[in-house]
């Protein structure tokens, strides 16, 4: 099953999104939050992200949801710390972080492959709210 990593500048945001996503996940599904800095500050930490990706991977790859700006840079930096095998199986979803994470988690829970999980997360951009 594809794992999902949530990268936010805020630890609380990442944890909160994970909490919501867990409501919709399969029991054995890996959803890992990588939010904030080690000192509790606002920011993104590439090492935390790479560790999260490693823990989220069960062999089928990992979809990464990001918030703004440096979350993307840190995630791309994190990719450099991964071994080649895993690097080929991780992808950032160009999606709103919350809607993307939830859609990705549900798609992954169906046993879909990484490309489908990313596509569903990115499709969440078009979800209308009212």
């Amino acid at each position: 099953m594809v794992g999902v990593v949530i990268v936010s500048h805020s630890q609380k945001v990442a944890e909160g999104i994970r909490e919501m996503a867990l409501q919709m996940s399969a029991p054995e599904q890996k959803i890992i939050a990588a939010g904030g800095m080690a000192d509790g500050g606002i920011g993104t930490d590439a090492f935390q992200v790479s560790e999260a990706i490693i823990s989220a991977n069960t062999g089928d790859g990992v979809a990464v949801m990001v918030d703004l700006g440096s979350a993307v840079l840190s995630t791309e930096t994190a990719f450099e710390f991964l071994d080649e095998e895993l690097r080929a199986k991780v992808q950032i979803a160009d999606a709103p972080i919350l809607e993307g994470a939830i859609s990705a988690v549900v798609e992954a829970s169906l046993g879909s492959a990484l490309a489908a999980v990313i596509a569903t997360a990115e499709g969440a951009r078009t979800l209308n709210k009212c």
Partner: peptide, 18 residues
């Protein structure tokens, strides 16, 4: 570089760290 990557927090962390 490693320390900057894990402690700066903004875009400058991955950039200067790299």
């Amino acid at each position: 570089g490693m320390t900057l990557i894990s402690s700066v927090g903004g875009a400058a962390g991955p950039l200067y760290g790299t």
